[in-house]
């Protein structure tokens, strides 16, 4: 009972956070495309090559990647071999899911810790053509890994309470009339 409450609370939190991530990531795709187009236009048409466009585009791509990472985790879109899950009994499948999610959590835990250290060291390194330190770029990693950990906590709870990925995904499908920000 308590577990279910925790799970639904976490789901609401995750949906809220991830919908912010959604709008951030799609905006980043649009802006990075515009920035690179601007680079071409300024160089070729106006004969005035901009120094900052390439670097800005790269950093936006990095942010886009790590901010979309938890969404990809939530939707189970990572590339994986999964012949075992088709061979196993339902009960063993829950167990396998829990093992896999736990392994991922371990990776994410160290990734979070080390990327945070990495980001704080980046505070002393200046970007080449932008007036920022690399801290502001590296920060995308701990944020992305942190959000992904929240996601996997929910997935583990799902597996414990007996919700298999297929049904989960079905629940995540957009419902007719559902507010846009609630769809992932």
């Amino acid at each position: 009972m308590g577990l279910n409450l925790l799970r639904s609370g976490l789901r609401r939190l995750n949906l809220g956070l991830l919908s912010v991530a959604k709008y951030l990531s799609l905006t980043l795709v649009a802006v990075m495309t515009l920035v690179i187009l601007l680079q071409v236009v300024c160089r070729y048409v106006f004969n005035d090559a901009l120094a900052w466009t390439e670097e800005a585009g790269r950093y936006m791509m990095v942010w886009m990647t790590f901010i979309a990472l938890p969404i990809v985790c939530y939707k189970g879109q990572h590339a994986a071999l999964d012949f075992f899950s088709h061979l196993l009994w339902r009960r063993t499948r829950y167990l396998l899911e829990i093992v896999l999610y736990t392994l991922i959590m371990v990776v994410l835990f160290f990734a979070l810790e080390k990327s945070w250290l990495f980001a704080s060291k980046g505070a002393r390194i200046f970007a080449t053509s932008l007036p920022i330190t690399k801290y502001w770029v590296y920060l995308s990693m701990p944020i992305g890994f942190g959000l992904s950990m929240l996601v996997y906590v929910e997935l583990i709870l799902d597996a414990i309470t007996g919700l298999l990925p297929e049904r989960r995904q079905a629940q995540l499908q957009a419902q007719p009339g559902q507010a846009l920000w609630k769809q992932l």
Binding site: A79, A80, L81, F84, L96, L100, L103, I104
Partner: peptide, 8 residues
């Protein structure tokens, strides 16, 4: 082999 996403 047990299905961990390749990236992880």
């Amino acid at each position: 082999a047990i299905g961990l996403p390749v990236a992880f």
